[in-house]
Design a protein around this nucleic acid. Structure first.
Lengths: 220, 220
DNA sequence: GTCTATAACCTGATAGAC
DNA sequence: GTCTATCAGGTTATAGAC
C-alpha cells in the first residue's frame, strides 16, 4: 500500500497545469507540451494517464464540476427545507445557483473560466458530454423556479437563467479587459458584492417579465 | 480601370469563407487551408492580400464592425433628437445598442458570433485592437445612460451593460445548444421578440439597482 | 509509471514561375 | 494577382527501453 503523500501525483500535476493553461489561453491554444513543461511531467506520461488530449480536457472538467454542482443542489435542498413546502423566492434560487460559482471562482478562478471556454468549443461530442452533466441540475432548478414564479413559461425561465449564467461567465472571462474599457470600480474585485448585486439584478429582471411570456408588452 | 463586377473578388471570397468558418469553429480551430478550400482560393493568395492569418482575422472583424457601430450611434442620435434635450429612457438606450446587434445577427449570424469568440481570444494585441474600436461607442452610450439613471455610479452602469452584452453574445453562441438543455420555445427563434424582451429584462434590472451602487441592500 | 526517440501529420508562411 | 512547391516548425500519439 502506498502512503498518502503531500507531494502531488503525476496525474494531479498534469490536471493542475492543464487547468491553469486552459483557463488562461483556451483549450486549443494550449499544447500538451506546454502542460508537461509547466507541470514538470513527461509527454508520454500524459498519454499513459489520460489516453488523449480530449480525455484530459474532460478529466479537468469533471474534477471540479461535480463538487460545484453538488454544492448548488445542497444549497437548494437547504433552502427548500427552510421553506417547509412553500415556494422559494427567486432570490433564494439564484443564490443557490450562483453562490457556489462565485465562491469557486474566488477560490480558484481557473475552473470557472474553463466552464466558459468549453461551452462554445465546436466539438459536438464535447458539447454532448457537457449537456449530460447538466441535465439533473437543470431539472431541479427549473422546477423550483417554476414554483417561485408561477405563470412564467418554463422555456422562458430556462432561457433567461441561462442568459444570466452566460452574462456571468462572459464577465468573468473578460475580467482582465474590463478596466481597459472603463476605469473605476469593477464589481469583480469584491466578489461578495458582485454576488449580491447579481441576485438583485436577476431577480428584478425575472420578476418584471413574469406573465409577459406569451405576449410581451409593447416597448413604449 | 476595372469595371465593377458581380463576381466577388478573391479577397472578398476569402473574407466570406473566413467569417463563416471562424464563426462556426472559432479562430484557432480554423486553418487557412480550410478557408482556401471553402472559398476556392489559393493559400498564397491569402498571404498576398492579407499578409498573415492574424491580419485576416482583423480584416474580417473590421469589415462588419464599423457598419454595426455606426448604426448604433445613428439610433442614439435619433433618440436624442427626438427627446430634444431631455434624458433618454434606459429602454431607448438599450434599444439603440442592441437593435443593430440583433438585426445583424438575424441577417447574418456569423459576424456577431465572431464578436463573441474574439472577445476572449488570449492574444493581448488583438484585445487591444478590439478595445480601441469600442472606445468612442462606450463614451457616448455611457454618457446617455448616466443621464437616464442619475445617481447610478458610471462604473456600475458600465459593468451591468457589459454584463447584458455578455449575456447576449453568450446566448447567441449557445443558440444551437439551448434546445438540448430544454426543449420548448427558444426566444432566439423570434429575434424581434427576443429584442423586446431583452430590453425589458435589462431595463428592469438596471432600474432596480439604481441608487444601490455604493451600498447594496441586504439580500433578504 | 516514466522515460527517449520517433512517427505521421498539420500548421502558417514564402520563394519563384507565370 | 495567382499559381506550385516547399520550408521550418509545431502538433498529438505511440513504440519500446528501463
Amino acid at each position: 500500500m502506498k502512503e498518502k503523500t503531500i507531494v502531488k501525483t503525476t496525474s494531479e500535476r498534469a490536471l493542475d497545469a492543464a487547468e491553469a493553461l486552459f483557463a488562461k489561453q483556451g483549450i486549443r491554444a494550449t499544447s500538451l507540451r506546454e502542460i508537461t513543461e509547466l507541470g514538470g511531467i513527461n509527454i508520454a506520461a500524459i498519454n499513459y494517464h489520460f489516453r488523449s488530449k480530449e480525455a484530459l480536457v474532460r478529466a479537468v472538467y469533471e474534477r471540479s464540476f461535480h463538487a460545484l454542482n453538488d454544492e448548488r443542489l445542497r444549497l437548494l435542498d437547504e433552502a427548500e427545507r427552510a421553506a417547509s413546502g412553500e415556494p422559494l423566492t427567486i432570490e433564494a434560487i439564484l443564490y443557490a445557483f450562483f453562490e457556489p460559482m462565485v465562491r469557486a471562482w474566488k477560490e480558484n478562478p481557473n475552473f470557472i473560466l474553463i466552464v466558459g471556454r468549453l461551452q462554445h468549443e465546436p466539438d459536438p461530442e464535447l458539447s454532448a458530454f457537457i449537456q449530460n452533466l447538466y441535465a439533473d441540475l437543470i431539472r431541479r432548478f427549473l422546477a423550483a423556479a417554476a414554483r417561485a414564479l408561477p405563470g412564467y413559461p418554463e422555456a422562458d425561465l430556462f432561457f433567461w437563467v441561462h442568459f444570466l449564467f452566460g452574462g456571468v461567465v462572459y464577465t468573468l472571462l473578460a475580467s482582465q479587459d474590463i478596466p481597459h474599457y472603463h476605469q473605476g470600480r469593477n464589481l469583480l474585485e469584491t466578489p461578495d458584492d458582485f454576488l449580491k448585486r447579481l441576485i438583485r439584478f436577476g431577480a428584478a429582471a425575472l420578476r418584471d417579465q413574469q406573465g409577459t411570456g406569451v405576449r410581451p408588452r409593447q416597448l413604449r
